[in-house]
Amino acid sequence: MGVYSGLYNTFFRQNTTMLATVFLGAFGLQLAFDSGSTLIWNNINKGRQWQDIKAKYVQNAEEEE
């Protein structure tokens, strides 16, 4: 009970703090969701994507110069 009422009083009692919570929460969740899914995706496709093989060719180009 104490936790919930504390949360309520801190974040949702006043309209401005509630709005701030909603917007910041959306921003943070989006960030976490995007970076998390990218992490999983890159792990599944390890070694297949351009970012995994790019280093070989960028280095080669520098050696030639």
Binding site: I44, N45, R48, Q49, W50, D52, I53
Partner: peptide
Amino acid sequence: LHKTFDHQALR
């Protein structure tokens, strides 16, 4: 459905 192109093969 869960695999990208193999970019080494694309090259």
